[in-house]
């Protein structure tokens, strides 16, 4: 919505066009589909979030009570901070690493298609299988990774040490999703026409300048998509930590989704869980919007 309104060219063009409101009829089916698939379920949640539901017959309107409670809930705030920390960490690792991997793939080799398929493999594994793989892989008693780290002289046990649990979760997410960034970046890199490299070479540009002034500007589009995808996905991560650590040790890896699941499914607190869900949704929307406008404003300058 926002880029459309701030784009002055768009306004200028429409100023010359005659208005024909019948066009809205053509968009109506889309509104209906979106209404049934998104708006109505979302409204149900909004409806729940302002009521205290005791049973089928007795419910009370409580206004913003659940929202206030949620925002004042120390466990919510903790989970929220953990969630931001997790998203920031995986983005900080996956984006540069993905670009580095993409730069390392030869564009012309006969092995390239094979490398790309191998890279895509982690993306094809179901989430809870990924969790299970790492659950076993990282076990300090029988897992290959856990045993190796301990054999190397570092005491490592992700089930007992919060820091180890965190590192294992981050490693798992990086293993699972760096390929996505790498594949997107590789697609971006291959779309750069050869003359750009030739020109930079003749200008005497050094390798880092070629990356900074030729490749990075042309990767911008795919990187915006990669960051948005990973930001949303990592902010909503549920299955993998649930399988791997179950939120522990203690609450040290309890993220928002897990806390929400405990509330909604475990304790059946539908009202607070609904308020929680709406807030959660709004925060994701806010972060994506902030990131997108930041990028777009930079672009205009």
């Amino acid at each position: 919505m926002l880029p459309l309104l701030t784009n002055k060219r768009w306004l200028k063009v429409t100023a010359f066009k005659p208005h024909n409101n019948r066009a809205w009829l053509g968009v109506l089916p889309v509104f209906l589909i979106v209404g049934f698939s998104a708006v109505i379920p979302l409204m149900t949640v909004v409806n729940y979030s302002v009521q205290d539901i005791l049973d089928f017959n007795s419910r009370f309107f409580v206004g913003f009570q659940w929202y206030r409670d949620t925002l004042n809930d120390a466990r919510f705030v903790d989970a929220f901070i953990r969630q931001i920390g997790f998203s920031a960490t995986v983005l900080a690792v996956e984006i540069p690493l993905g670009i580095a991997v993409a730069k390392g793939i030869s564009k012309t080799s006969r092995m390239t298609p094979i490398v790309l398929v191998l890279l895509a493999l982690p993306l094809l594994i179901p989430w809870n299988v990924v969790g299970t793989i790492w659950l076993m892989f990282a076990r300090p008693d029988i897992g290959l990774l856990g045993v190796l780290i301990n054999a190397a002289g570092f005491s490592y046990n992700y089930t007992a040490d919060p820091l180890h649990a965190w590192l294992t979760l981050v490693a798992m997410d990086v293993w699972h999703w760096t390929s996505l960034v790498a594949l997107l970046s590789f697609a971006g890199l291959t779309s750069i026409p050869a003359p750009y490299y030739q020109a930079a070479e003749l200008d005497g540009a050094r390798a880092w300048q070629v990356f900074r002034y030729v490749e990075l500007p042309r990767l911008r589009g795919v990187l915006v998509i990669a960051v948005l995808l990973r930001l949303m996905d990592s902010f909503m991560i549920y299955t993998e930590p649930f399988v791997l650590t179950g939120g522990g040790p203690g609450n040290s890896t309890t993220f928002l989704t897990q806390y929400l699941a405990t509330m909604a499914v475990g304790q059946f607190d539908l009202g607070p869980a609904a308020a929680f869900s709406v807030l959660y949704f709004l925060f994701i929307l806010l972060f994506c919007w902030l990131f997108y406008t930041m990028v777009m404003r930079n672009d205009e300058r």
Binding site: D203, G204, A205, Y213
Partner: peptide, 24 residues
């Protein structure tokens, strides 16, 4: 070399583009 289509550093303005080979 000047190529078939304009090859410039898209993130730099005109003056910086012109200055690039000199700054290097």
């Amino acid at each position: 070399q000047v190529f078939q289509f304009p090859v410039l550093y898209e993130s730099l303005n005109v003056a910086d583009n012109l200055a690039f080979p000199l700054r290097v």
